[in-house]
């Protein structure tokens, strides 16, 4: 069992930070809604502290996902092949664009994903800041609470769009190459 260095980074970006972020989103939305609802009891200091740490961790996950995506994986994706290159397997963007059946994964999928993904860390950083600053008092700020929940949901949507297109693009034109990392030696059965 082996994996290339580029595939490993793509996995860390998408299945690591990105997927963990998406998993964390539903919990954050639920807890933010529950702990700041005007009708519920005030959260205990431990609950408040837990959600503070949870939201900071989410912000770190989101920033790690977009920064690795933009500065580590994306340059491999958009690499330009030398003139006359017939095998485009190492040039995912060009590989997608070379076929009418796959070009949309780049022209719609990647073009949307590469920009909208940044809404996730921006939104969740803001949500974390506001929750840490206001805590339970958010229940007394109706419009602020609504805006914070909306941005948290938008962050989920942005990460979902990026995650979906990332997975589909990697299915049709995987980022590969670099050093091969041997994970285990298989045995014939």
């Amino acid at each position: 069992m082996a994996i290339t260095e580029r595939a490993l980074w793509t996995m860390i970006h998408g299945m690591g930070f990105g997927a963990l972020y998406l998993l964390a989103c539903s919990g954050a939305l639920l807890e933010l809604h529950r702990l700041t609802a005007p009708s519920t009891q005030a959260p205990t200091p431990a609950q408040q502290r837990f959600l503070n740490i949870y939201l900071i961790t989410m912000a770190l996950l989101a920033w790690a996902a977009v920064l690795i995506g933009a500065y580590v994986v994306y340059p491999w994706y958009r690499a330009v092949p030398p003139p006359g290159t017939a095998d485009l397997a190492m040039f995912p963007q060009r590989l997608l664009m070379s076929n009418p059946a796959t070009i949309g994964w780049h022209s719609l999928g990647m073009e949307w994903k590469e920009h909208v993904a940044w809404f996730a860390p921006i939104s969740i950083t803001m949500v974390a800041f506001v929750f840490i600053r206001y805590g339970r008092d958010l229940a007394n700020h109706k419009h602020l609470r609504t805006a914070v929940l909306s941005f948290a949901a938008a962050s989920f949507l942005a990460a979902g769009i990026a995650g979906f297109f990332g997975a589909m693009i990697d299915k049709y034109a995987p980022v590969q190459g670099g050093q091969v990392i041997q994970l285990s030696q298989g045995e014939e059965k």
Partner: peptide
């Protein structure tokens, strides 16, 4: 029912 806010909303408004 919501109570009177303890913290002014300006900081939250700036963030959103």
């Amino acid at each position: 029912m919501p109570n009177t806010p303890a913290i002014p909303n300006g900081s939250g408004a700036a963030a959103i």
